[in-house]
Design a protein around this nucleic acid. Sequence first.
DNA 1: CCGCGGGCGTCTAATCACTG
DNA 2: CAGTGATTAGACGCCCGCGG
Length: 206
Amino acid sequence: MLELAILGLLKERAMHGYELRKQLSQKLGFFWTVSFGSLYPTLKKLERRGVVEKFFPPEQTTRRKQVYRITPAGEAEFLELLAEGAHSVWEEDKFPLRLAFFRYLGPETRVRLLERRKAYLEDKLDEGRRSLGWAHRGRADSYTLSLMRHGMETTQHDIAWLDKLLHAERAVLRDGPRASAPDPPERPAAEPDDRQPRTTDEVRST
DNA sequence: CCGCGGGCGTCTAATCACTG
DNA sequence: CAGTGATTAGACGCCCGCGG
């Protein structure tokens, strides 16, 4: 999970460990916090595997900082990890992380993963309805009932949001990339340059 | 030049979840 | 249940920039 996040951020641009953690906290900290204790061992592991590498930027004349960048092998592994998430992408903790890098997936893959996530949430909603029924019959206290209702409302909200994303993705599939972007069309704050991200669908088709 | 503060990077003990 | 790996908080050390 952390590997995917690191590779995804390094794919955007090279950065040192401290900055990586800052970026992780800024972009993903809403649902996930990363400590140095897990970040650096993971970076080392990735470096040993040759998917990231350390370098010292020539303009870096003062403080000696270890800047990490992704290697071509790392790019391939990132796309693999991102798409391979098909078997777990709908799970609670992993979905937001993968969504943060969704732009690197092809539209077909995005639609497939969104549909699976939606199905997962609909199952969860059904389960919630059953639990609520039991809680009513079992005379659960008002706080418990309120909490359960809140959980269901949140899930319903998530499903509606997924529907919007799916609608936009299908429009792209139908009308091509000129169709409307998903709503909201949040563009990542730190797009590295004007390169179009290479998607997993493109990789697979080559 | 020197000392200090702070940014950055590393290490470690503890905890937790998972697996065989 | 023990072993393993991932993760965490926090301590520590290195080094740069800055002010005296």
